[in-house]
């Protein structure tokens, strides 16, 4: 049975040809950006030894570049940036909270266990 009190949000998602041109332009821009970042990461991974920078800097650079890439994929490709603010936070905040807690607890423990292994020569 068809109910008429349900709003069909999917029918409202259409856009015109002119809007399409603008949206595609943004998609290609993000494509170029993601490609450049990936290439930069690989080159950094292969050549960092000859560049005279410390591993800590290279490591943080990798993580920051990855988060930038992830941000563009989620916000532009998955259209989360176009959704309502409430929806954005409902998705991002619980996830960020759990994962940050998990990372904190695991890395803290891993460091302790590494030190124990070194101390007793395990």
């Amino acid at each position: 049975m068809k109910r008429d009190d349900i709003i069909e949000y999917s029918l409202d998602n259409h856009h015109s040809e002119e809007d399409g041109v603008k949206i595609r332009k943004k998609i290609w821009f993000v494509t170029a950006l993601l490609t450049i970042i990936t290439a930069a990461e690989v080159l950094l991974g292969v050549f960092w030894g000859n560049m005279g920078v410390s591993w800590a800097i290279v490591k943080s650079a990798f993580i920051i570049l990855t988060l930038v890439k992830a941000g563009y994929i989620v916000m532009v490709f998955m259209h989360l940036g176009d959704e309502r603010k409430a929806m954005r936070w409902v998705i991002l905040i619980p996830y960020a909270f759990f994962i940050m807690y998990l990372i904190f607890i695991l890395f803290y423990d891993a460091t302790v266990l590494y030190n124990v292994r070194m101390l007793f020569g395990l």
């Binding site: 949000y9 998602n13 259409h14």
Partner: peptide, 8 residues
């Protein structure tokens, strides 16, 4: 993008 979500 247009659609319900961008309406005020």
């Amino acid at each position: 993008m247009s659609g319900e979500a961008s309406k005020t």
